[in-house]
Design a protein around this nucleic acid. Sequence first.
DNA 1: AGAAACATACCAACTGATTGGTATGTTTTA
DNA 2: TAAAACATACCAATCAGTTGGTATGTTTCT
Lengths: 203, 203
Amino acid sequence: MSRRGEDTKERILDAAQALVLERGFAATPVDDIIKSTALTKGAFFHHFPSKGDLARALLQRYADEDLAVFDRLAARADELAEDPLQNALLFLSLFEEFVDAMAKPFPGCMFASYIYEGQTFGPEVHALIDEALKGWTAVYERKFEAVIASREPRQKVTAKQLAESIVCLMEGAFLLARAYDEPEIIIRQSRQFRAYLRFLFED
Amino acid sequence: MSRRGEDTKERILDAAQALVLERGFAATPVDDIIKSTALTKGAFFHHFPSKGDLARALLQRYADEDLAVFDRLAARADELAEDPLQNALLFLSLFEEFVDAMAKPFPGCMFASYIYEGQTFGPEVHALIDEALKGWTAVYERKFEAVIASREPRQKVTAKQLAESIVCLMEGAFLLARAYDEPEIIIRQSRQFRAYLRFLFED
DNA sequence: AGAAACATACCAACTGATTGGTATGTTTTA
DNA sequence: TAAAACATACCAATCAGTTGGTATGTTTCT
């Protein structure tokens, strides 16, 4: 695909992402997407064989960007803090900074949006969601394993438990943040979890 | 409305709830709802002036039932445990029992579903969601206030913080539970939070 | 190099199916 | 017997997707 074609495809994805995060996938007609890009139906279906293909491409791109952010934050944390506990704490701090820089109105999490539309999507989409959720958990789990290996926790906890907790906590925080349009909730909860970690592992 | 009319209205709501939780509201046509009740369009629009009215009625009923469950669990906890900490812990245990008794496939939380469809609904629906979320938080906050009043927490925490945390944690757990069709996640996370509370407040 | 052959990117207009909703009946119940 | 509770038969709008076509490259052949 030429440079020009690639650009329009991105434009369609940009418009679709904004609308889908706002209203959900099923509630976002193709007509509205093309209206917001000043393109036509022909152009849309030239780039995406079906609306379902858009759903897949949209989530794929979102997952890729999400992974990139995660990797970037992890790399910066690795750079600045060698100690496992400090590394984990810093990673969460960097995540808070990232959320703080997000635009209002707070868009929410696309995985969550897709999860609650369930039946609408095919197995490929479900696999993507699975991969993302398990990916997050795995990253956290590795970090917490290192922390537990380096220090005796004040309370008996497993890395897996902690990892699942922070993923749940953040997804829930994303939901409330969206309901109230208050991204600060995410930051508050992440900070609270940091305090919990310090409490568990610091002297 | 007569007994019979009330019954059919409930039947419609039952069918709608199952479908909406499965696929989302916008992705659930009225035709599918009436198909699953063996009724007709005339009957549906006799009971609900519009599909939007169904959305409101559906969430209202869900909120009422949710509140009833909450009150029931709280009453049982109050009955069995006077001590604030034991009361809070027991309340969570009873909630875990309740989740454990829920049917598979795990349906998820209707508030979350509605939140991620945002734009679709009117201000009345948003008010209902707000009320429910703030209601949960308020119940937890009162319980944790009593706990904090009765004991010195090992770490400085506020009742409000703890309340927001458990609400986020549970909503996130509901999301993962739905993604994996594993309600056990909710139970695990609630149990984990109980351990955290005991750790904070027990000697 | 330059023309012929082909591919990509897009558009305007249309299509059949589905959508929420209505108008007009018929049955049931109080 | 008169509302309330349904059913039947429709409608206008909207939906995802198609059609036939043009304009603009890009590659291939001479």
